[in-house]
Design a protein around this nucleic acid. Sequence first.
DNA 1: TTTTGTGAATGGATTCACAGCC
DNA 2: GGCTGTGAATCCATTCACAAAA
Lengths: 212, 212
Amino acid sequence: MKKESKIPEASIERIALYSRPLEKLLESRSFVISSEKLAQLCKVNPAQVRKDLSYFGEFGVRGIGYDVTDLLRAIRKILGSDREWRLALLGAGNMGQALIRHEEFLKRGYRFVAVFDSSHGKIGKTLSSTSLVIQPMSMLGLLVESLEIEVGLIATPPSEAQHTADRLVEAGVKAILNFSPIQLRQPDNILVENVDFTVNLDNLAYFLKERL
Amino acid sequence: MKKESKIPEASIERIALYSRPLEKLLESRSFVISSEKLAQLCKVNPAQVRKDLSYFGEFGVRGIGYDVTDLLRAIRKILGSDREWRLALLGAGNMGQALIRHEEFLKRGYRFVAVFDSSHGKIGKTLSSTSLVIQPMSMLGLLVESLEIEVGLIATPPSEAQHTADRLVEAGVKAILNFSPIQLRQPDNILVENVDFTVNLDNLAYFLKERL
DNA sequence: TTTTGTGAATGGATTCACAGCC
DNA sequence: GGCTGTGAATCCATTCACAAAA
């Protein structure tokens, strides 16, 4: 393992990607895979796979490849998805409800433990197919502490996103996954990731137009 | 304008990002902005803003800055979001329904003109707050042609994602926005963008863990 | 004076290519 | 013989710094 070298952010992202096909391989009883094959499945360069992993250790066997079970376990350890993370949902509209029922989250150890909304019409209702009751924003501080919530997912209307982020920070969450098309302002010690699918569509539109 | 220089893919993505604060500026009656200020709003370097734009032309005025209206129009033209794009939704589950009601899409000229699902229980139903009736997959080819659908959004369960993509390609769509955590296989002439929020959460988890 | 547009310089990330190991 | 791990080489993206323009 290279000691002390700086790890490219892109490597972290790809490592998360590598785990997806590994899970499928296990289901189909394949227990060994080469960087060549894994790279194919993820559409990257084989050397890239090896280098990405090498930032964190030596997980393969020369002449053989990688043990799928071991590699998957190693990746989970690297990413911190070898434990449960407790999430709060902010905004119980269409997108929020889709997120809370999104099975991939639970499968990977992400667990919603509270839902908040600012609309009086929604507060107090139970979200079907979950056991969660929609809480008023005033409960945020209390519940973040008592339920040990670490990450907040913002799925409010854009106009409420910044205010919601401010309240989350006050309440003590450490990271935010922001689904609104707004660039949030937040203290340096709070991590934020943005998900904005309109950007993805814009990209498709650009490249579609290009190839005329 | 630099002629013939290759445009970094990252620049396209950022240019889409620049348009978000510009829209807000217009609403608040600000008609001029410097690269410095726009960069702040988007959390990038001012030189980056200028270089990104310079790949496509000269949109600013030296000593002054950029005219917000003009720049926004220019960006829309660059990205191809100055016209309507016709979308199909594949999979009318929680995520699919959230996408079809996602207002940001319509605001940017993306319009769902058909919804498909493979479940008999859903086919024939009308999606509330839209005028769309859920179609069986067998209608895909016909409707892609008659409605001139260019992009398909895959929001099926992961197990159906590849099959759905194959059908979309058969039917003649040119691009796919894939919300399933699966790496799709498709012909080279079909554009694919992937959206996988669990990857974003994995990233947050990694950096949260790091900073202990 | 101010701020753009852009070559040049820097800094990263990706890929190559091969030594090292099974 | 086959595949990993990794320094070196390459490629690409970002930032600097300043001439050009208003």
